[in-house]
Amino acid sequence: MSDLQVDAVFDGHNDALLRIWHAGGPDAIRRFIEGDEIGHIDLPRARQGKLAGGLCAIYVPSERVLDSEGNWPTPSRQEALEITTAMAGILTRIERQSEGGLTICRKAADIRRAMAAGSFASVFHIEGVEAIGADLDLLYLLHAAGLRSLGPVWSRPNLFAFGVPFRFPSTPEIGPGLSAQGKALIRACNELKIMVDLSHMNDAGFWDIAKISDAPLVASHSNVHAICPHSRNVTDRQLDAIKDTGGLVGINFGVAFLNPTGERDTALPLEVMLRHIDYIVDRIGIDHVALGSDFDGTTIPAALRDASDLPKLVDVFKRGGYDGDDLAKITHGNWLRVLERTWGG
Score class of each variant (00 low, 15 high):
Arg19Asp: 02
Gly292Pro: 14
Ser98Asn: 09
Glu95His: 08
Leu258His: 04
Ile174Ala: 10
Asn158His: 13
Leu159Thr: 05
Ile90Gly: 03
Asp203Pro: 00
Leu4Cys: 10
Ala86Asn: 06
Ala8His: 05
Gly205Val: 12
Gly39Thr: 09
Asp135Leu: 12
Ile209Leu: 10
Trp72Val: 01
Asp296Phe: 06
Ala241Asn: 04
Ile227Leu: 15
Ser213Lys: 01
Ile284Pro: 00
Ile277Asn: 05
Thr266Cys: 08
Ala109Arg: 14
Ala16Gly: 02
Pro44Tyr: 11
Arg283Lys: 15
Asp203Gly: 00
Ala109Tyr: 01
Tyr140His: 15
Glu271Lys: 14
Gly146Ala: 12
Asn202Lys: 13
Ala108Gly: 13
Ile186Glu: 04
Gln5Tyr: 08
Leu138Cys: 04
Glu191Thr: 15
Leu248Arg: 01
Leu248Tyr: 03
Glu34Gly: 00
Leu142Met: 14
Leu4Phe: 11
Leu339Gly: 00
Gly100Gln: 11
Val272Ala: 10
Thr92Tyr: 07
Phe162Pro: 00
Arg148Ala: 03
Ile251Asp: 03
Thr103Ser: 13
Asp3Thr: 11
Asn334His: 07
Phe295His: 04
Gly133Leu: 03
Arg337Glu: 01
His200Glu: 06
Val9Tyr: 03
Phe32Leu: 13
Glu127Asp: 11
Ile58Lys: 00
Arg30Tyr: 04
Ala290Val: 02
Glu37Leu: 11
Ala80Glu: 09
Val289Ala: 08
Glu82Leu: 14
Ala256Thr: 12
Ile277His: 06
Gly24Arg: 07
Trp72Ile: 01
Asn252Cys: 14
His225Ile: 04
Gln97Glu: 15
Leu102Trp: 05
His143Ser: 10
Leu150Pro: 03
Arg283Leu: 12
Glu127Trp: 06
Phe120Ser: 03
Phe124Ala: 01
Ser122Val: 10
Pro260Gln: 06
Ala290Gly: 09
Gly163Phe: 02
Ala52Ser: 11
Asp137His: 08
Ser62Tyr: 00
Arg156Thr: 02
